[in-house]
């Protein structure tokens, strides 16, 4: 089973939930798809680490061979090529490595070369396997890195907890594609509500069963909670605002390894998720 944990922005407790859920399971794979800023491994401090590079083929243009026919520029539907002063110029970040331009060039002026754009780190920490996608800085799209992360994940057994990138861009879609259940983490503020709405729309678009974890709950009004009630969304758990929990996290420790009460809390949450996922799967089958 694959559980994706997501939120509209960083710092909502998404990693906290993902890390602790993975740790309470008996056999699990914590999968970090937040490739621009992967930090789950800072908590797990994995050992027996191995790396795998991720590369992408990028066209290179030989201006001496190029006749300036513009075929490549007009072909590229990602607009990764611009035609400036009679020659094509590549905007690497927009290139999707389709290979079309190299294939079409009548002068064979375009060749493809492999460019490393990131890596996947795999390691272990007690009962948890940790897979971390790391995107080189300055790269626009982490999608190829996430695909490689998913390939590594599919070679492993156990419960997968996927720590998704914040937001709702293509990297998030890539991360939840294979998920059986999505856990949305939301903060109790107006801004948190806005982010929750955004990710709710995304998971609904993908027809994923999902539930919400309300984080940093206090006695005060919680716009995110009211939203869930209005929209009849499943509330999986309420994590209270807790100074000690915050300290455990900022010290890079894992709450469920520190305190039995948190262990119990997250074990119960995991239980609820598994039941919800099963229940949801059944209702889907009946349709």
């Amino acid at each position: 089973m694959k559980i994706a944990v997501l939120s509209g922005k960083g710092g909502t407790g998404k990693t906290l939930v993902a890390v602790n859920l993975a740790d309470v399971a008996t056999n699990s794979v914590y999968t970090d798809c937040d490739v621009e800023e992967p930090n789950g491994h800072l908590f797990f401090k994995p050992t027996e680490i191995s790396y795998q590079p991720v590369s992408m083929s990028i066209p290179t243009i030989d201006n001496n061979l190029c006749s300036g026919c513009r075929i490549c520029v007009d072909f590229c539907r990602f607009n990764a090529l611009a035609f400036i002063a009679g020659k094509p110029v590549l905007f690497e970040d927009l290139c999707h490595s389709c290979g079309g331009c190299a294939m079409l060039c009548p002068k064979s002026a375009i060749t493809e070369k492999q460019n490393t754009i990131g890596k996947v780190m795999t390691g272990n920490s007690q009962n948890v396997t940790i897979i971390t996608g790391i995107l080189n800085t300055g790269r626009a799209s982490g999608v190829p890195v996430i695909r490689e992360v998913m390939r590594c994940l599919n070679n492993k057994t156990g419960l997968a907890v996927i720590d998704c990138p914040p937001g709702s861009a293509c990297v998030v879609m890539e991360s939840i594609k294979d998920a059986d259940y999505c856990v949305l983490v939301a903060e109790p503020t107006i801004f948190g509500l806005h982010n929750l709405q955004m990710v709710t729309e995304l998971v609904q678009l993908f027809h994923k069963p999902f539930g919400v974890v309300l984080n940093k709950c206090t006695a005060e009004a919680n716009p995110s909670e009211s939203y869930c009630k209005n929209k009849k969304l499943t509330i999986l758990a309420r994590i209270p605002f807790d100074k000690e929990l915050g300290e455990i996290s900022s010290n890079g420790e894992i709450a469920v390894r520190c305190k039995p009460a948190w262990h119990e809390f997250f074990l119960k949450l995991l239980d609820i998720i598994i039941k919800e996922a099963g229940y949801e799967a059944d209702t889907h089958n009946q349709r």
Binding site: V73, R77, F78, N79, A80, A82, F83, I84, F91, L94
Partner: peptide, 19 residues
């Protein structure tokens, strides 16, 4: 023409202008 393009709208729009 970039209004309907999925990605790289800025480049396509700029291309239209420089042409």
């Amino acid at each position: 023409p970039a209004t309907s393009s999925a990605g790289g709208a800025g480049i396509k729009a700029a291309q239209t202008v420089i042409d």
